[in-house]
Design a protein around this nucleic acid. Structure first.
Length: 634
DNA sequence: ACCCCTTTGAAGTCT
DNA sequence: AGACTTCAAAGGGGT
């Protein structure tokens, strides 16, 4: 049984993400000394990575002490979401917090960062100290947060606050460290949510649930505001289907818009508030990401919080909260009757819609110049009119969005290709339940997408991109003959990968050529290990017999509308794409794992990787096929 | 400025 | 039906 996890098993899976807070306290001293020191930050990051890496090798007692529960971020997510929803409802009538679309944003990084604090809502003394030191501005009596008579119950409050207080942190952060280079300041300038004192106070109240370090450590990672740092689950949390309505935001929330030209904050004109994204018709809907709501890029501003609370923007769609949140967060209901593309009734363009003129073809005129000679004017016009509706994100993409920031923060890597490699391996190392969350979310996204854009087809986006030559995947001559386009060496992509998460071979070329068996064998990679033990429910286990259909794993069905997660009936097992052997996963899976090439820390018996690798290794020794990695499923 | 890289998954096309 | 292709995100690197 691939640790369907009740408790302990999962720990291992998330082990590499655990952080020693005791050690962090030490680092924290460094930080207080040189808060803005890049070098120190690097040290901190480095240390953190080491810590997380060494976690597995630390003493058991220590682990039990600080080991939070397995991935509580996802497990507690549902509860938090419920709490948050309730908190939203309670705040609906005049609460200062109207459930802004980004309310759930804080979940974004909480997952991996706050686990230790989310265990039971309590905060260990050391942690308190830690927080106080780290966030002097936050060191205010927690009771202040309770002054608000409208405050929900502590439990709700905790959740509620944690949902949106990240903005406040950021405000604090901005004040605390005004030299922060990332987009932090911009977004906060654009979002005076930061000015909410209550928010600040409450943040303290929920200090136990947050780990501000991450925001400091991730100096280069604007965890909060970056569009791609949204927690994939955010869409399910952020919006209440009952609380959203267009309108003028409360005065204290009125966005301070940065002048696109001057960059100087200015008071937004009322006309700019209603259509929060006062984009030209050709520019509407260019928000690329759910977090685009948060990211006040030029010409687009964060969702303002309407005074009347939030109202379901799409009454026509009978959706549950999750669905509506997805709507609000990602998809534009432009299919739902409304004036302009990419803008729903609220005038808010949706991330899923990208104006061809902006995103795809910055210049409408250039379209005719594009390589593929489709200069036909009508076509061009049509494209201009037709907003680019992006594909719904799949589970992995959602996961990537969430985890990228973390990986970037942990590693020195910056190149997305390398990050994605790590993410891919982490994805495989996720437990079944963890992946299930993303699959479920992705399924909802697809479902919602299909509802919002009934006529949309993935085909519509074909050719929108520049043609990527799909090199040698189909006809890749197994390193025998010439390689017309030698693939870029992956070695540089994974310079410090050992620090991050996914061990690779000593020479680092783990993905040199997944298609070539020899290369795969020559460059055994962690993935093989990680997936094996975790028994990738969908991607790596073999279709056949051994495959258990976890209720949380809606086997991707052809029908986009197949909403029932229980579609995991055995009939559809063969349809999973990743089961096909051509997938790299299969290749990776077949790789033996030379332990001598692995970082020592990962070879620790307690290391999840070690165990996974061991299992995989044994499996391979037994020359069993892919299904081998799948421990018998109940 | 634009494409590549790199990942997984979904959905399309092609054979 | 199965194999293959394209696109979704991301952002540094290369041309």
């Amino acid at each position: 049984m691939p640790q369907l996890n009740g408790g302990g098993g999962d720990d291992l899976g998330a082990n590499d993400e655990l952080i020693s807070f005791k050690d962090e306290g030490e680092q924290e001293e460094k930080i207080s000394e040189n808060v803005s020191s890049e070098r120190d930050l690097d040290e901190v990051k480095s240390s953190l990575v080491n810590e997380s890496e060494n976690n597995s090798s630390s003493s058991d007692s220590e682990q039990t002490d600080r080991r939070p529960r397995p991935r509580p971020e996802l497990e507690s997510y549902e509860k938090q979401r419920e709490h948050f929803a309730e908190a939203l409802r309670r705040q609906q009538d005049g609460g200062f917090f109207k459930g802004p679309p980004y309310a759930g944003y804080p979940f974004l990084m909480i997952p991996d960062i706050t686990n230790p604090y989310l265990s039971n809502g309590s905060l260990s003394p050391s942690t308190r100290t830690y927080l106080q030191m780290k966030w002097p501005l936050l060191d205010v009596p927690g009771t202040a947060a309770l002054k608000d008579s409208r405050s929900p119950t502590p439990g709700h409050l905790r959740c509620f606050v944690s949902c949106f207080s990240l903005f406040c942190w950021s405000g604090v952060f901005s004040s605390y460290r005004p030299t922060y280079k990332s987009g932090f300041r911009e977004i906060y300038q654009a979002s005076p949510l930061m000015n909410c004192r209550t928010c600040l106070n409450k943040r303290v109240l929920v200090g136990a649930e947050v780990k501000p370090t991450a925001y400091i450590e991730s100096n280069k990672v604007p965890v909060v505001q970056h569009p791609h740092h949204v927690h994939p689950l955010t869409p399910l949390i952020t919006y209440s289907n009952e609380h959203f309505s267009p309108g003028t935001p409360p005065s204290h929330l009125s966005p301070e818009i940065l002048d696109p030209k001057t960059g100087i904050p200015r008071t937004p004109h009322p006309s700019e508030l209603s259509p929060y994204y006062p984009l030209s018709p050709g520019a509407v809907g260019q928000i690329p990401h759910p977090l685009g709501w948060l990211v006040p890029q030029q010409g687009q501003h964060m969702y303002s919080i309407p005074p009347g609370g939030f109202r379901h923007p799409y009454p026509a769609l009978a959706m549950n909260a999750s669905m509506s949140s997805l709507v609000s967060s990602r998809f534009s209901p432009h299919m739902v009757p409304h004036p302009s593309h990419g803008l729903h009734q609220t005038g808010i363009p949706h991330p899923a819609i990208v104006s061809p003129a902006i995103k795809q073809e910055p210049n409408g005129d250039n379209a005719s110049n594009s390589t593929h000679g489709k200069p036909s004017v009508p076509v061009k016009k049509e494209e201009e009119k037709k907003p680019h509706i992006k594909k719904p994100l799949n589970a992995f993409m959602l996961y990537m969005k969430e985890m990228r920031a973390k990986v970037v923060a942990e590693c020195t890597l910056k190149e997305s290709a390398a990050i994605n490699q790590i993410l891919g391996r982490r994805w495989h190392s996720l437990s079944r339940e963890e992946q299930a969350k993303y699959y479920e979310l992705a399924r909802k996204e697809r479902q919602l997408h299909s509802q919002l854009y009934p006529g949309w087809s993935a085909r519509d986006n074909y050719g929108k991109r520049k043609k990527r030559k799909r090199d040698n995947k189909p006809d890749s001559p197994p390193e025998s003959s010439f390689s017309p386009q030698p693939k870029k060496q992956c070695i540089p992509y994974l310079p410090s990968e050992k620090m991050c998460d996914s061990p690779t071979s000593s020479h680092g070329s783990m993905l040199d050529s997944p298609a070539t068996p020899s290369a795969a064998l020559a460059s055994p990679a962690a993935p093989a290990a990680t997936h094996s033990e975790q028994a990738q429910p969908l991607s790596l286990t073999t279709k056949p017999e051994g495959r258990a259909h976890h209720p949380h794993f809606p086997l991707p069905g052809k029908a986009s509308g197949s909403s029932s997660t229980s579609s995991s009936s055995s009939s559809s097992t063969t349809s999973h794409p990743s089961i096909s052997l051509h997938s790299q996963s299969a290749t990776l899976l077949s790789r033996p794992i030379p332990f001598n090439t692995l970082p020592h820390s990962l070879l620790s018996p307690s290391s999840p990787f070690h165990q996974a690798a061991l299992h995989s290794h044994h499996a391979l020794l037994q020359t069993q096929p892919l299904s081998l990695v799948t421990k018998s499923v109940e």
